[in-house]
Simulated assay, not measured.
Amino acid sequence: MSRFDDVPNHPGEPHRGGLAGRLNWLRAGVLGANDGIVSTAGLVVGVAGATTSTAAILTAAVAGVTAGAVSMALGEYVSVSSQRDSERSLLAKERAELAASPNDELAELTAIYRGKGLRPETAALVAAELTEKDPLAAHAEAELGIDPDELSNPWHAAGASALAFTVGALLPVVAILLPPPGVRVPVTFGVVLLALAGTGALSAHLGESRKTRAVIRLLVGGALAMVVTFGLGQLVGSTGL
């Protein structure tokens, strides 16, 4: 048995962290797509409640998808930028502590591995060998849960968020534009609810939670959003405002 076999999430098994990271990105993509589906569906159904003009619905859809994607990208960029700034600040502090008090930091790392259940001599050996290889990476991972080589990228997050929102938003846009005016709203309701059921089930599967509850939440929320906006659209359309 390797002396590292008892160490949880050791760098010798990078597939664990990589898989978790990919699942997080996929889960975020599903949530972004849900936002695109619900918000755009509410918008186009609301406009369809006020007018049967395809040009008006298309104009509202293009504006809504563009504004939503930009908003999602900007929000994600700001959020992840703040996270990356915090990570860099913590790494800088850890780097300074390693330079000022290497022995104290080694003792701290040893104590962390002892706290994870390793014997004192094993913990000391693991801490010493990891510190010899890359002290900053060893301490950052054990103390902060940060990989210095894989900091959050705000541009990647912004692009992924905008793309996920746009892909989700295209579904209700196509559903509202293709059918004849007389059936476009019920067709959109059906398509959107089916899509939300699928994304809800996928999101629950990725999060290892109950699928039924997640699907019901999305279906109720999506249906409510479309009913409210359709009613408001009809109200505005009937008053001629």
Rank of each mutant, 00 (worst) to 15 (best):
L224E: 00
L224F: 12
E150Q: 15
L109E: 03
S82Y: 02
A50W: 08
E105S: 08
R22S: 15
L178H: 02
L219G: 14
I146L: 14
A201W: 10
V38S: 04
R217D: 10
L151F: 03
G36T: 06
A50L: 09
L136N: 10
G231I: 13
A92G: 14
L43E: 09
F230E: 07
N153L: 08
L219S: 08
V30W: 03
A124Q: 12
G18D: 12
A67R: 02
H15C: 02
M226Y: 01
Q83Y: 01
A67M: 08
E129K: 12
R213S: 14
R84L: 01
H10L: 09
P102Q: 09
G12N: 10
G159Q: 06
Y77K: 04
G42S: 02
T122Y: 00
V236P: 06
I146N: 05
V30L: 14
N153R: 11
G237S: 04
P181R: 04
N24M: 10
A100S: 14
V78K: 01
L98I: 08
A50Y: 07
L109Q: 06
A204L: 13
G233Y: 11
F230I: 01
L58M: 15
H156S: 06
V62Q: 03
A48E: 12
E143R: 15
K116E: 14
V173G: 08
V227T: 15
Y77R: 04
T229M: 08
S53F: 07
V173W: 08
P11W: 11
I37C: 06
L109S: 09
R88G: 05
T54P: 00
E143H: 15
L224A: 15
S209G: 11
L219R: 02
N34Y: 07
T229W: 02
R114A: 13
A164Y: 04
P120I: 08
F230W: 15
T66P: 06
T239R: 11
D104Y: 02
E87A: 14
A140M: 07
H15D: 08
M226P: 00
T239F: 12
A140G: 03
G207M: 03
L109W: 09
L171N: 03
I37T: 06
P181L: 06
P154I: 10
P172N: 11
A201E: 00
S161P: 07
K133S: 12
T188M: 10
E129L: 15
P181Y: 02
M226E: 04
T188N: 12
A197D: 04
G198E: 05
L163F: 13
A169S: 13
G32V: 01
D149K: 12
W155P: 00
P11I: 13
K211W: 10
G32T: 01
A107F: 02
A61F: 12
L202K: 03
A201Q: 06
V126D: 00
L151S: 09
R184A: 14
E87V: 06
V220G: 10
T59D: 04
A175I: 05
G145N: 07
V80E: 02
G190L: 11
A195H: 06
A61S: 12
G145A: 07
Y113H: 15
R210I: 09
L218M: 14
R213F: 09
L91G: 01
V174F: 15
S86G: 11
T131D: 05
V215C: 05
A111Q: 12
A225F: 02
T229N: 08
A158M: 07
A92P: 00
N24C: 02
F4P: 04
G240R: 11
